[in-house]
């Protein structure tokens, strides 16, 4: 049993403490916006915020996330008002298949919190998510647009 605080709500989840946070979020809490892509922290599809930092939840055990503030893609918007990254993604029509975009958006939101006006070099260093559709050109444009918003 672990107690997780996700998007402001507390959830008691009955899992082995070694279970990756990703699967507790998806299968116990039922929030499926966070995706599985590789299971070894390579692709970033599972990115969530843990105490504000972008974390690849597929390799973080539930035990390590207890007592911390977890935010998933479902909790990024403020009610019905989209986060500025989501808004920029909408305006720039970033997603293609969209499967990697939850993780991409979470990685970018964490970057902008830390660096409100990121350079291209900052983006290159901090956004390392895989997108097989190849949305990177729109991702970069949308990050700069969000930084100006």
């Amino acid at each position: 049993m672990a107690r997780l605080t996700i998007n402001g709500k507390t959830h008691d989840v009955a899992v082995d403490p070694s279970t990756p946070l990703l699967w507790a979020i998806r299968e116990q809490v039922g929030l499926t916006g966070t995706k599985y892509g590789c299971g070894i922290a390579q692709c970033g599809a599972c990115t969530v915020h843990v105490d504000g930092a972008a974390v690849r939840s597929c390799v973080m055990p539930v035990a390590a996330a207890e007592g911390k503030k977890i935010t998933t893609i479902e909790g990024l918007a403020n009610g019905r008002a989209l986060h500025k990254v989501q808004k920029a993604w909408l305006d720039n029509e970033v997603p293609q298949c969209g499967y990697c975009q939850s993780g991409m958006i979470m990685a970018v939101a964490a970057l902008l919190r830390e660096k409100p006006k990121p350079t291209d070099a900052d983006i290159d260093a901090r956004v390392t998510n895989i997108c097989r559709c190849g949305t990177f050109q729109q991702v970069r444009e949308a990050i700069h647009a969000a930084a100006k918003a």
């Binding site: 892509g37 692709c43 956004v127 390392t128 895989i130 990177f136 050109q137």
Partner: peptide
């Protein structure tokens, strides 16, 4: 997996 079958990242994206 992607550790030995890699895919391009944004840093490698050309204009």
């Amino acid at each position: 997996n992607f550790n030995n079958y890699d895919s391009m990242r944004i840093a490698q994206m050309p204009k």
